[in-house]
Amino acid sequence: MPAALEFDQVRFRHRGDVDSAFALEIDRFAIASGEQVLLAGRSGSGKSTLLALAAGLVEPDSGTIRVAGDAITSVRGAARDRLRGRRIGMIFQTFHLLHGFSALENVEAALLAIGEAKSLQRSRARELLAALGIERASATVDELSVGQQQRVAVARALAPRPAIVLADEPTASLDPENAGAAIDLVQSLCREHGASLLLTSHDPSMTARFERVESIERFVRGAGAVGGATANSAAAARSPAPGGACE
């Protein structure tokens, strides 16, 4: 089975920064199917950029990024958007729900994007929202509590049955107790739906919740090639190659 996510010799530097060194240098980084990885690092260290690269929203200067075996860096335009829609679910710190749309419509939108039939959109969205305890599926997201909005965001990310969920600081705006509950929810749902998880966080308390923790520092040029090793790297080493291999 191909890795859910795979970076191969990826180099990236920010636009307009051509003379500077690469911002990110990732020789090899892979996440196995079903694996859950915490990408740790301080704010502004490049965690989100790595997620953007993985989602094909930012273009690397070189290298290859594969999602479930398909090189997202090799396709452009609508084909890349389609690939992202089908293989990747995204969860954001501020949820980024479609305002003015109902919870149901927010989830349906993710299915509409990948061309799911209208009848299937509705049944799948209802099923997911019900499983997450969202009873007022027809209420607009603005009418829901923060916790409910987060669950809608998770449901939307999982709706297209992605190979991997990229979660960008999903707990940054929550208190520790709710943050823990939210992470549990995301992790359990990803496990349940067979999706891998790459979650970024600057919160050190999150490391205990993941078997594999990677530090963004190891991909940042100038930060020290081995500086990114974390307490759970031993667990990472236990992951089967090539999915869990980190160089």
């Binding site: 335009g77 609508a78 958007d81 992202r84 829609g85 980024h96 994007a113 990948i114």
Partner: peptide, 16 residues
Amino acid sequence: RRQIAILRVLGFSGAR
């Protein structure tokens, strides 16, 4: 812009 970006993340193409 934000709504468009969300739709793009969900898989809607720029042309669509």
